[in-house]
Amino acid sequence: MSQNKRVILSRRSVIKRAVLLGTAVAIGLIPMKVLRAEEIVKGNVAPNAKKQIGFSYDEGKCIKCEQCVRICQETYKWEDETPWRKLLKNEKGDALSMSCNHCADPACAKVCPVVAYTKRASDGIVIHDSTRCVGCGYCLYACPYHAPHLSETLGCVSKCHFCYALQDAGSGPLCVGICPTQALTYGDMSELSKKGDLNYKGLPDPKITNPSMIAIPKQK
């Protein structure tokens, strides 16, 4: 008898909890809310609200030596399939050295379910923590610049982190340091954005994520 009673009571309490949980979820359920939440996030991360550093690439100065790519791979040991930096070239002779653009509105950070991405308030660097990453691949679709890559062997994502440890120690990123012609430089976006943007040779609309990088095409 008493056992029966206990069973009924526990079931009842389980249901009660279920109802509470269900209601809590149902309140915020309307999927449109998710979209709206996203817009609010976008609004919060105004481009010039905080300090944001970024890359600058001057095509006219670039000799396509790929030192920037080589030093990055040698130091951070990424696989060829998951490049942190690439030197993009086309048959017309155009080039662009690009890594993660540490966007002001990082789409990767927005979609990552496990918060593996953090955007540092001090300089706007977007850092991906591979130890948190579950490897869902959502950020690969979200990023318009193909910056994050999912390693088949490791099962997690990695990308450029702007050599943040070196920056904290007072020096600059390796790719910039090794560039023999200073085609690749870095600086504060409030200065860089006066010189140009990333509306460059087929690249996606910078409005999507507000990338912290400018590319200056060579004079023809």
Binding site: P113, V114, V134, G135, G155
Partner: peptide, 20 residues
């Protein structure tokens, strides 16, 4: 998931980002 079978405990954290 890349880590689904390797480190499944990481999945618990998929509750964390309300903007995702």
């Amino acid at each position: 998931l890349g880590q689904g079978l390797r480190q499944p405990w990481l999945i618990i954290k998929m509750f964390l980002n309300p903007t995702s």
